[in-house]
Design a protein around this nucleic acid. Sequence first.
RNA 1: CGGGGCGUGGCGCAGUCCGGUUAGCGCACCUGCUUUGGGAGCAGGAGGUCGCCGGUUCGAAUCCGGCCGCCCCGACCA
Length: 491
Amino acid sequence: MAEAVTPRADDYSQWYNDVVRKGKLADNSPARGCMIIRPNGMALWENMRDELDRMFKDTGHENFYFPIFIPERFMEREAEHVEGFAKECAVVTHSRLTQDEEGNLIPDPESKLGENYIVRPTSETIIWDTYSKWIQSYRDLPLLYNQWANVVRWEMRPRLFLRTAEFLWQEGHTAHATKEEAIEETERMLDVYTTFAEDYMAMPVHQGTKSESERFPGAVDTYCIEALMQDGKALQAGTSHFLGQNFAKAFDCTFTDENNEETYVWATSWGVSTRLIGGLIMTHSDDQGLVLPPKLAPHQVVIVPIYFNDDQKTDVLAACERIQEELADAGVTVKMDDDDTQSPGWKFNEYELQGVPVRLAIGPRDLENDNVELARRDTREKTIVPQAGIAERVSDLLDEIQTSLYTQAKERRKERTHTVDDYDAFREVIDEDGGFVWAHWDGSAETEERIQEETGATIRLLPLDREDGESGEDMLTGEPSEGRVLFAKAY
RNA sequence: CGGGGCGUGGCGCAGUCCGGUUAGCGCACCUGCUUUGGGAGCAGGAGGUCGCCGGUUCGAAUCCGGCCGCCCCGACCA
């Protein structure tokens, strides 16, 4: 087993990298901090994208596309936004290269741009500049748009999928006539993300809002979903921002309402990225490699034929093709691997590394008894079942795997979720087990910062119904707390 | 930006301390035969400016100087 995955217990980071690379999802690229998404990884992303896109359209949104370049002056318009993003922007300053005296390629000084362009780290600025032209009247509202795009944030320490200098994402940008409507939209999209995470990714999440220090630069309120990874660290899986009138004011975007009054437009933005793939990996995968939920797997089933001579080959392949068709007709995405140059054993390992939810093997033994061998990736259980009714059986099994992955993940989260009242206990839990910790917080940024410095844990979210919860005293300062908040070390 | 590690066929490494045949090994790759129900075996084969530049030397992967790049930990970070 020279190509086995490093066990999680030995080195979690190495395990993660192994799963990504051996699952053929992505490679490091020659461009620092960027990744090459391989066909397997892209197919997974496409499935996620297609499902999310459907959900966005079902909630009334349309897609558009804005340029990758943002005029530098736009970034200056919203003060907090500049501060948040300025230190991780790639900047385009020249339009061509030339050679110096030594023959080295350099940006041609004569091609220096009159104004620099920023490679978008997010598109609020250029979009709100345009919205100010599109919106005049309340009749123009709301605008409910989304774009699928790549963005660049020059991160100091990248990790495949979790934090890359360039990543793929969607960003929704909506404009509303009233504050209430904008907040409603912000919450609606948070629910969309929650449904997607739980029903499709089989990844349980908590909903909430960010503390001020973790808020999106330029937002009034940042809503988020947070998931717990197998190593006890939290992953922010999606965010939905209520932007208030901040960007409308920065880009002078007003409209005339029913009473002929000029008012600034209310805004939201919301996004999820290829980071979700990192979350998917760290939620379900094991020491044998990738484990994918059936609803998102590029192939739900792989068929592996087994034969020892040409006569058997003919019969086995015929049976495989028949079953492949039967499964495809039932709406199952199925791949048949009839590659003659690899052994069945090699294929078994390969598709486990790739996380294919169900493997179906057919050999001479099965043909004699009209059976097939079914193996599920999540539990690695193998069963011999009759060929008759195979499509229904496989469909049921896929449903069961989907449900089971979610149940297992939720169970793991429950085991690693703690409630503490005492700061010493808090430190001990964070140090030894990690995981989520519900604790009281006095609401001050100073306390939050001190806890982060001393323990490495941050406030992941304030629950949406925090004010309905029990009040108490801050575990560190003893000051009054309006309710427990969720702490964890985070990616 | 601070601390640590590493650059040698596609990948992973040995060799470097102590300079000296034709730079090795495992995996992967190509050809042939035998194989195929959990990463097959044998035989043959191809593939390397030893990160880059300069220096020392009869001779440099190895010693010296400079440069570049990557990885890990930290700081940073939707």
